[in-house]
C-alpha cells in the first residue's frame, strides 16, 4: 500500500515537470518529435532507477547526521550532509558515464536508441532533483527509494511524451507569430500543469473518508475532530506541492 501510494503520488501529484518544474530545459528542447521524446524519457527512467537508490545508500550510510556510526562509536558525531550536493552530482555523473560504457558494450541496439541522450542526462535537473527530494522527504527504505526513482522517471516520461505529441499536432495550427515555438509550449505546459493539479485529490479522497469514520465514532467528543482535520489539511497540502504551502501560510 505504501509503495502504491508513493508510486501514484510521484507520477501524478508530484509530477516532476508539472508540480516542481524539474527537467524543464531538456523537456522544452527535446520535445519536438515523439520518437526522440520517448528515447530521452526512457533514458531518464533508467538513470533515475539507478541513481536514486544509490544516493539513498550514500545518504543513509555516509552523509546523514550520525550515519558514520557503523565505522565505530567515535564517528557517530559527524554530520556530512553539507556534502550531499557534491556527492549526489558526482554519483550521477559517474553513473551516467558508466551506464553509457556498459550499454555500449553489451547492447549496441539499446545504445543506439538511448546513447545520444545519456550525456544530456547528467545535467537534467530531474535526476538531481529526484535525489534531493528523496533526501528532503526522508524516504525510509531502499525499496521505497527505488520505487520513488522509477515512478518519478515515469512521471517525467509521461510529461515529455504528452507535450511532444501536442507539439507535433500544433504544427498544423495557425499560432500567432510571436507565440510560435517556445511561447505556445510554455502556455500549453501551464495548462497541462493546471490539469495535473486535479490529481491532487486522488490520494486525499480516501483519507477524508477515514477521517469521517473516525469523527463519527468519536462523535461525543467534538473537540477531538478539529485537530484531526487540521492534520489532514496539512497532510493534503504537503502532498500537493511546495507552492501550495505558501498559500496555506497566507
Amino acid at each position: 500500500m505504501e509503495h502504491l501510494e508513493l508510486f501514484f503520488k510521484a507520477i501524478f501529484i508530484d509530477n516532476m515537470v508539472f508540480a516542481t518544474f524539474l527537467g524543464m530545459c531538456s523537456y522544452l528542447a527535446v520535445s519536438k518529435k515523439v520518437s526522440t521524446a520517448v528515447g530521452l524519457g526512457a533514458a531518464v527512467i533508467f538513470v533515475m532507477a539507478i541513481t536514486v537508490p544509490l544516493n539513498w545508500l550514500l545518504d543513509k550510510y555516509i552523509l546523514q547526521e550520525g550515519a558514520l556510526s557503523w565505522l565505530g562509536e567515535e564517528y557517530a558525531v559527524y554530520d556530512l550532509s553539507f556534502l550531499s550536493f557534491i556527492m549526489f552530482i558526482a554519483t550521477i555523473a559517474t553513473m551516467v558515464q558508466l551506464v553509457e560504457i556498459i550499454v555500449e558494450k553489451f547492447s549496441p541496439a539499446l545504445y543506439n536508441s538511448l546513447g545520444i541522450f545519456l550525456p544530456l542526462i547528467a545535467v537534467n535537473c530531474a535526476i538531481l532533483g529526484g535525489s534531493l527530494f528523496m533526501q528532503s522527504r526522508e524516504i525510509q527504505t531502499l525499496g521505497l527509494a527505488f520505487n520513488y526513482g522509477v515512478s518519478s522517471g515515469i512521471g517525467w516520461f509521461l510529461a515529455i511524451l504528452a507535450i511532444a505529441a501536442i507539439r507535433e499536432k500544433i504544427r498544423y495550427s495557425n499560432v500567432p507569430g510571436p507565440l510560435r515555438g517556445l511561447g505556445i509550449t510554455f502556455i500549453i505546459t501551464g495548462l497541462m500543469a493546471i490539469g495535473f493539479m486535479s490529481f491532487g485529490g486522488m490520494l486525499t479522497g480516501g483519507d477524508e473518508e477515514v477521517a469521517k469514520e473516525e469523527t463519527a465514532s468519536i462523535e461525543t467528543n467534538v473537540k477531538v475532530d478539529e485537530p484531526i482535520l487540521e492534520e489532514e489539511t496539512i497532510k493534503v497540502i504537503d502532498s500537493v506541492s511546495v507552492e501550495e504551502l505558501e498559500i496555506k501560510e497566507e
Binding site: 508539472f18 508540480a19 516542481t20 518544474f21 504544427r171 500567432p176 507569430g177 510571436p178 507565440l179 510560435r180 515555438g181 517556445l182 511561447g183 505556445i184 510554455f186 502556455i187 505546459t189 501551464g190 495548462l191 500543469a193 493546471i194 493539479m197 506541492s241 507552492e243 501550495e244 505558501e246 498559500i247 497566507e250
Partner: peptide, 28 residues
C-alpha cells in the same frame, strides 16, 4: 501563486518580447 501561472507568465513575456522584435520569431 500556483505553479502553472509561472509558466503562463513566462509565456506571456516571450510573447511580448517577440512581438516587439520580429527577428526572434521561430518558424515552428
Amino acid at each position: 501563486l500556483l505553479a502553472p501561472m509561472a509558466l503562463i507568465t513566462v509565456g506571456i513575456i516571450i510573447w511580448v518580447q517577440r512581438s516587439r522584435n520580429e527577428a526572434l520569431i521561430e518558424d515552428n
